[in-house]
């Protein structure tokens, strides 16, 4: 069996304590395999951002196990988690969140500096990514001079600079019209499918689900659906008896 790139085992997250205690996530068990793009959907407040934050080693879970390539990263120190994020995770944020005073090319060079890539290799990788995302001509511009789609493409390129094991995309299409949003997700899907990386796409837009391989629906901190994208797209509300969900029910 292939080792999952990312595996969450019985992850729970609580905020606050006593009366003010909020259960943001309850017994989440899920996995993302190499070459697989998973759509994470759910209404506002469902816990999907918390889930993404935990998967991205930005937030520690209250309990449970978080495996990246089989290695438990849940118990790591903040400094170690920073290194994990730098070396093995690619982030794409809502509204791209590029550094305002760096040109497109410099955004990527900055990542290269952080991961201490030798300059010849850095130049080669930056050139290849800009080319792959069709941004070579616009790479000398600052984010403020780019369209939303262009910014998001630079953000994808930036997320790929460290050759990550998993790409975590947080509503990358939020500020784009549907055609451009779809284009951006297509690029993301291509990038995941063409490699043995994994990807998680948090989105509101269910029209993008067909570009993904699997859909995980989350409501009130619990996974309600974990199914191949083809069936989920057909009926998003229907609860699929996934192994993960089964496991969760059995534990109760």
């Amino acid at each position: 069996m292939v080792t999952s790139v990312l595996a969450l085992n019985d992850i729970s997250k609580q905020f606050g304590s006593g009366e003010a205690r909020v259960d943001a996530l309850m017994h989440i068990t899920m996995r993302v395999d190499p070459g697989e793009l998973v759509a994470l959907i759910g209404p506002s407040g469902s816990g999907k951002s918390t889930l993404l934050s935990i998967a991205g080693a930005l937030l520690t879970a209250t309990s449970g196990q978080l495996l990246l390539d089989g290695e438990d990263i849940a118990s790591m120190s903040p400094a170690q988690r920073t290194r994990i994020r730098l070396e093995r995770i690619g982030f794409i944020f809502q509204g791209s969140n590029l550094v305002s005073y760096l040109t497109g090319r410099e955004q990527l060079m900055f990542m290269a500096k952080l991961i201490k890539l030798p300059s010849s290799e850095a130049n080669e990788r930056v050139g290849r990514l800009l080319d792959a995302l069709g941004m070579t001509k616009r790479a000398g511009n600052y984010p403020e001079e780019m369209s939303g789609g262009e910014r998001q493409r630079i953000a994808i390129a930036r997320a790929l600079m460290n050759d990550p094991r998993i790409i975590l995309a947080d509503e990358p299409t939020a500020s784009l019209d549907s055609a451009r949003g779809r284009q951006v997700v297509e690029m993301l899907a291509d990038e995941v499918h063409a490699s043995d990386r994994a990807g998680i796409l948090v989105t509101h837009d269910e029209r993008l689900i067909d570009l993904c391989d699997r859909v995980i629906r989350i409501e009130d901190g619990e996974i309600t659906t974990d199914a191949p994208a083809s069936s989920a797209a057909a009926d998003g509300k229907h609860e699929q008896e996934s192994p993960a969900l089964l496991g969760k029910i059995l534990r109760r």
Partner: peptide, 15 residues
């Protein structure tokens, strides 16, 4: 916000 993003992608506070 920008500093938050840089930290999220793995920039150390020292940097």
């Amino acid at each position: 916000p920008e500093l938050g993003v840089m930290k999220a992608i793995g920039t150390k506070t020292g940097y």
